[in-house]
């Protein structure tokens, strides 16, 4: 049984049928990526898993428990943390406060402190800026903060929404190296990306979404080599 099982998920925004029967599995210990163009329904899928939008039908099961109808803050307690689209750092709080907010659900103070050390080792740039208001960080630093903050919830499943968006190529390389590191340390990851090249390079499994439907899924290296994906998403051929 997969850690996360999404079956025939439908989401409507008013009259718009945003997700038209999405099914996907995330196996424990893997990086699974969902790639697709702007507006295909990638972020909506994550929002449905996190409980921010209510699916109109279908099921989402995490570690055997149903998530439909569960409130967003309770889903975090069940072990799913999200680094949202556009980063969503609390610009009015310091970097340190943002990290503490990430650990809001936890009561093991010693564990939080040692996890904070661990993520600050992953992102040394943040350590230098702990007391700074996070609104003053650069885009890349804010992205690092959003990921670090999600990690502090010590999630079983980490949802990453477009971590490469708007970042310089060199920073994107750094971020993806860290994503692989996090995964190696045992966190399962569902990664949403427009940058199919980077995402398929890092992931074990890949899903391709187009206008609210999964059109392809396979091992990431198989997808990276397939003609369809190369033409549509990798700009090759």
């Amino acid at each position: 049984m997969a850690l996360l099982e999404v079956r025939d998920l439908h989401v409507h925004y008013g009259a718009v049928h945003a997700l038209q029967g999405i099914s996907l599995d995330v196996e424990e210990g893997q990086i699974v990526t969902l790639i697709g163009s702007n507006g295909a329904g990638k972020s909506t899928t994550l929002r449905a898993i996190s409980g921010l939008v209510r699916p109109s039908s279908g099921s989402i099961k995490f570690a055997g428990r149903h998530l439909e109808g569960v409130k967003a803050h309770e889903i975090v307690r069940m072990g799913i943390a999200q680094s949202p689209e556009g980063r969503g750092v609390f610009a009015n709080l310091t970097v340190d406060d943002n990290l503490e907010i990430g650990a809001y659900t936890r009561t093991d103070r010693a564990g939080v402190l040692s996890d904070k050390e661990r993520v600050l080792d992953l992102f040394p740039r943040l350590r230098e800026r702990l007391r700074q208001l996070s609104g003053t960080l650069s885009g890349g630093e804010q992205q690092m903060l959003a990921i670090a903050r999600a990690l502090l919830a010590r999630p079983k499943l980490l949802l990453l929404d477009e971590p490469s968006l708007g970042l310089a190529p060199q920073i994107v390389q750094t971020i993806f190296a860290i994503i692989r590191d996090i995964n190696k340390q045992g966190t399962t990851i569902l990664l949403i990306e427009q940058n199919a090249h980077m995402a398929l390079g890092a992931a074990h499994m890949g899903y391709v979404i187009e206008v609210g439907q999964i059109v392809l899924h396979d091992e990431a290296r198989v997808l990276a080599a397939s003609d369809e994906v190369r033409k549509a998403y990798l700009g090759v051929g």
Binding site: A81, P84, G88, F90, D97, T105
Partner: peptide, 14 residues
């Protein structure tokens, strides 16, 4: 303070 800045993201923090 987090809720006052962005309630939706705050709910994603639990």
């Amino acid at each position: 303070r987090a809720v006052s800045y962005d309630a939706k993201t705050a709910s994603l923090m639990g």
